[in-house]
Design a protein around this nucleic acid. Structure first.
Length: 879
RNA sequence: GGGGCUAUAGCUCAGUGGGAGAGCGCUUGACUCACAUUCAAGAGGCCACUGGUUCGAAACCAGUUAGCCCCACCA
């Protein structure tokens, strides 16, 4: 064959093409939401990554899913906005900036609020660029002109408006309650930011003597150090053991404080001794009990995580030191009854792992009950739909049991709480504009609340703040509610739920139609990827090594909605191999293209052409349907199977004969079908593998500037040839059968051998038409047809779809081997027949099963019977 | 304490009531003019267990077992 020049190397090198195309797309503005101005709007707001971090595999999965959906919709002609952005991540970012300061020997207090915020902004700018680069290297087709940041001007305006509105409605309030204090992060955190982990601990049984000298009550505690702040001992009102003790007082040892014995239903009679020490200032339950019984709140633990001045001689000690010393003192006083081992849940900060200390302090809260109700209804009514649906239940259960949300944080990096306090009259002022004078007393001595808001407060507004709210922008009008939110299940409470109630409250409509939930990317042993385990993988490393398309492919293929996936390097090789396969199929096609005009010759579609075009149409429909259902992995699998197995391994091989030896018209037809099919495969594949598909599409004959804006093939308007499809599949089965016989008989791969076929006239016509394929794909030296009893006797035989296949190999085949092979085949056929016969003898099957199913089973029976007869007859010859 | 997920080939996983699938690994053969990042052939499954629904269940329902996860104020 003459060597034709192609610009393509034999092995695909993603590095050569990816950056080039991303730059091209950006330059042409294809990511802009204005690119299909007349299309129905489609919008995804990107879950904003923390601006301080760098992207991990979870982000890569999230971005890939969003990009697949976005590119799919854009190719459908939708007016598509994928809005990118980042999150200021209050605690995390502040911690990093403080860390950096510490290296210079400075603290934020030393440099002051303003200087600190400057540093934080510097930090933000530096890391932001990295995240954008990572997203771009993965091919994310977001509209960068609409990129947002949770702390930018617009988002800040949305936060201010929301806060003031909720404040005015009485849905935001300030109060002294017990909240979760992290002594490491030096701030309160909300309930869901506390992780409850099982930890090995002890249960100390301590004796509290009654004040009247009548013995003592024994209380059990896991945290002896808090007893210094005890305000009571509580028992269950129906607990017989303590019936006559309620109303007495006990002397709190060490502190020598007299505290009452009270009755409260909170107590569990089964646990410990049934008597509980009550520390209102350091335990949420005790706090509630304290309120019910008007107990004093005695704080003995400070914000620094040490015992404070109320702890007497233990003041200044860490909690653990105090615990040890205190237990020792009880022991020496004879007041330690016993110690048990106990595994119990300890609340720890989800950021830094420090044990959380419940502390009382004035904080800001969002009243949740009135906000939760419409948010629950939005999902119940189907206004917002979770995919998979089971997550709706997770959401609803949580929302129904929600408690008020503590939104103030003792940080500097974030949205400062828009409330001022008059230093003269104490008035609390919350307004849209910064106040200058106190509206009550006219004083100018106003001080703003020093705290900032929980980062999630601004994230909760993301679906509309990014579209321009509180301004009435065109963008907001067009794209709100957004189409779908794509995120992992671990963030449903933190973020999804809060966006839904915020959307209902501020916009009156839920922020998205669908919530597409995916799982987490775990390591190859199924462990969560984390910094402490050191098992995290940088997506960029993979992009550099295998290319972005392979990374995206690996994250998509075989991934089902809502389920976790394991990340394995070996799978990347599979992905890379597939890219290389597509590359080489294109290379082959380009090498065999001639410069004919499209209509130089009339098309003469062969059976193979009709078959592949039919299969292509079916795959287009399947892929589209699956993408519509968010079955992204299934869509890709269908494309992958067709592209590799049917197109590359079968059709390309079948086209070769015409390409190399065909008449000009035959050659032209093969080229045409090859080209159309390949181009359609590239279009189908584009949302999953944007780079390689653009590179190849541009080299093939095409219309338009970019594959990004080609119409996504959904099979509509494509001609189906169902009968030809069946015929071709029969031929393929015959070829497979011949290959199988040859392998079983140890006929060397390259050795040509004669093949004899016996079948009816119709099948013979089909097989004769396909003779070139049999010669090439089945290594047949020559093809001959027999009728009646003229079949060769010294031959290996198989039977497929009414066709007897003989491999006459006199002197070459091993008789015994062939006999045992045939016997095995007969046995399995008999088995199949028995099963079918049983089914077809079943009256209720015949009566109730759909006619087409019954018909199918009957046809199968006929087929198997024919096969059995044929093989039995063959076996006779050897005996 | 409540809720959820998972259980399919040696491994990782798809499977949407009607002939058990893929990739990797394994065995055998092949440097065939797009590709050895390839091709061909093969071995390998009581679809966790027990019931139920159904003409028909890997799939739907109930229970059991094992593993994982989430929520929850039991000292």
């Amino acid at each position: 064959m003459e060597e034709k020049n192609t610009p393509l190397a034999t092995v695909y090198q993603p590095q050569d093409v990816e950056q080039k195309w991303y730059a091209y797309w950006l330059e042409k503005g294809y990511f802009s939401c204005d690119i299909n101005p007349d299309g129905e709007p489609f919008c995804i707001v990107m879950p904003p990554p923390n601006v301080t971090g760098q992207l991990h595999m979870g982000h890569a999965l999230d971005a890939t899913m969003q990009d697949v959906l976005t590119r799919f919709r854009r190719m459908q002609g939708r007016r598509t906005l994928w809005l990118p952005g980042t999150d200021h991540a209050g605690i995390a970012t502040q911690a990093k900036v403080e860390e950096a300061l510490a290296k210079e020997g400075l603290s934020r207090q030393e440099i002051g609020r303003e200087a600190f915020l400057e540093k934080a902004w510097d930090w933000k700018h530096r890391y932001h660029g990295r995240i954008v680069k990572q997203l771009q290297m993965m091919g994310s087709s977001c509209d960068w002109d609409h990129e947002r940041f949770t702390l930018d001007e617009g988002c800040s305006a949305a936060v201010r408006e929301t806060f003031v509105e909720l404040y005015e409605k009485g849905l935001i309030y300030r109060g002294s309650y017990i909240t979760n204090w992290c002594s490491h992060c030096q701030t309160t955190i909300s309930d869901i930011e506390v992780e409850h982990n099982q930890r090995a601990g002890h249960l100390w049984y301590l004796r509290y003597p009654y004040a009247d000298g009548s013995g003592y009550v024994v209380v059990a505690t896991t945290r002896p150090e808090t007893l210094l702040g005890d305000a009571a001992v509580a028992v269950h009102p129906e607990d017989e053991r303590y019936r006559d003790k309620v109303g007495k007082t006990v002397i709190l040892p060490v502190m020598q404080r007299e505290i009452p014995v009270i009755a409260d239903e909170y107590c569990d009679m089964e646990f410990g001794t049934g008597a509980v020490k009550i520390t209102p200032a350091h335990d949420p339950n005790d706090f509630e009990i304290g309120l019910r019984h008007h107990l004093p709140q005695i704080t003995v633990i400070g914000k620094d995580g040490r015992m404070n001045e109320n702890a007497g001689k233990y003041a200044g000690m860490t909690l653990l030191e105090c615990r040890e010393k205190l237990v020792e003192e009880f022991r020496s006083l004879g007041l330690l009854e016993r110690v048990e081992d106990l595994e119990h849940a300890v609340g720890e900060c989800y950021r830094c792992g420090t044990p959380i200390e419940p502390l009382i302090s004035p904080q800001w809260f969002v009243k949740m009950a009135p906000l939760a109700a419409p948010a629950i209804e939005a999902v119940r009514s189907g206004e917002t739909r979770f995919v998979p649906a089971r997550f709706a239940r997770t959401y609803t259960n949580w929302m129904e049991n929600i408690r008020d949300w503590c939104i103030s944080r003792q940080l500097w990096w974030g949205h400062r709480i828009p409330v001022w306090y008059c230093q003269d009259c104490g008035e609390q002022i919350c307004t849209r504009e910064d106040p200058v004078v106190c509206p009550k007393c006219g004083s100018k001595r106003l001080e703003q609340d020093p705290d900032v808001l929980d980062t999630w407060f601004s994230s909760a507004l993301w679906p509309f703040s990014t579209l321009g709210w509180p301004e009435k922008t065109k963008l907001l009008e067009e794209f709100y509610p957004t189409s779908v939110l794509v995120t992992a299940y671990d963030i449903i409470f933190f973020w999804v739920a809060r966006m839904i109630f915020s959307g209902m409250e501020q916009m009156g409509r839920a922020p998205f139609h669908d919530v597409f939930i995916h799982g987490l990317v775990r390591d190859d042993q199924g462990r969560k990827m984390s910094k402490s385990l050191g098992n995290g993988i940088d997506p960029l490393e993979i992009v550099n090594q295998y290319g972005a398309d392979s990374l995206r492919f690996t994250l998509t293929m075989g991934n089902s909605p809502g389920n976790d996936m394991r990340f394995q390097w070996e799978r990347l090789e599979g992905a890379r191999n597939f890219m290389n396969k597509i590359w080489n199929a294109s290379r082959f096609t380009l090498m065999n293209l001639s410069d004919d005009q499209p209509d130089a010759y009339p098309l003469q579609l062969t059976l193979a052409d009709q078959w592949v075009l039919t299969r292509l149409a079916r795959v287009c429909a399947e892929a589209s349907a699956n993408l519509e259902k968010y079955e992204v992995g299934e869509a890709l699998r269908a494309i992958y199977d067709f592209a590799w197995d049917e197109f590359c391994d079968w059709y390309v091989e079948m086209a070769k004969h015409r390409l190399y030896q065909g008449s000009p018209a035959e050659k032209h037809t093969a080229q045409h079908v090859l080209c159309v099919t390949l181009r359609t495969i590239l279009e189908l594949l584009h949302p999953f593998a944007p780079f390689i598909t653009e590179e190849l599409w541009q080299q093939l004959p095409h219309q338009g500037e970019t594959i990004m804006l080609a119409r996504y093939p959904d099979g509509s308007g494509m001609t189906l040839y169902p009968e030809e499809e069946q015929r071709m599949q029969m031929v393929m089965e015959v070829i497979r059968s011949i290959r199988n016989l040859r392998a079983e008989m140890n006929v060397p791969m390259g050795k040509k051998a004669p093949v004899v076929l016996a079948c009816d006239a119709a099948a013979q016509a089909v097989l004769q038409e396909c003779e070139p394929y049999l010669l090439r794909l089945a290594q047949a030296a020559e093809l001959s047809f027999v009728t009646g009893g003229a079949a060769p006797d010294k031959a290996a035989k198989a039977h497929v779809r009414g066709v007897d296949i003989y491999l006459p190999l006199a002197g070459l085949i091993d008789l015994d081997k062939e006999i045992s092979r045939i016997e095995k085949e007969i046995a399995s056929t008999e088995n199949e027949l028995k099963r079918l016969a049983g089914k077809l003898a079943n009256a209720s099957f015949l009566a109730k099963a759909p006619a087409e199913v019954v018909e199918k089973e009957r046809a199968k029976e006929t087929e198997y019977q024919a096969k059995l007869d044929s093989l039995r007859k063959h076996l006779q010859l050897f005996r």
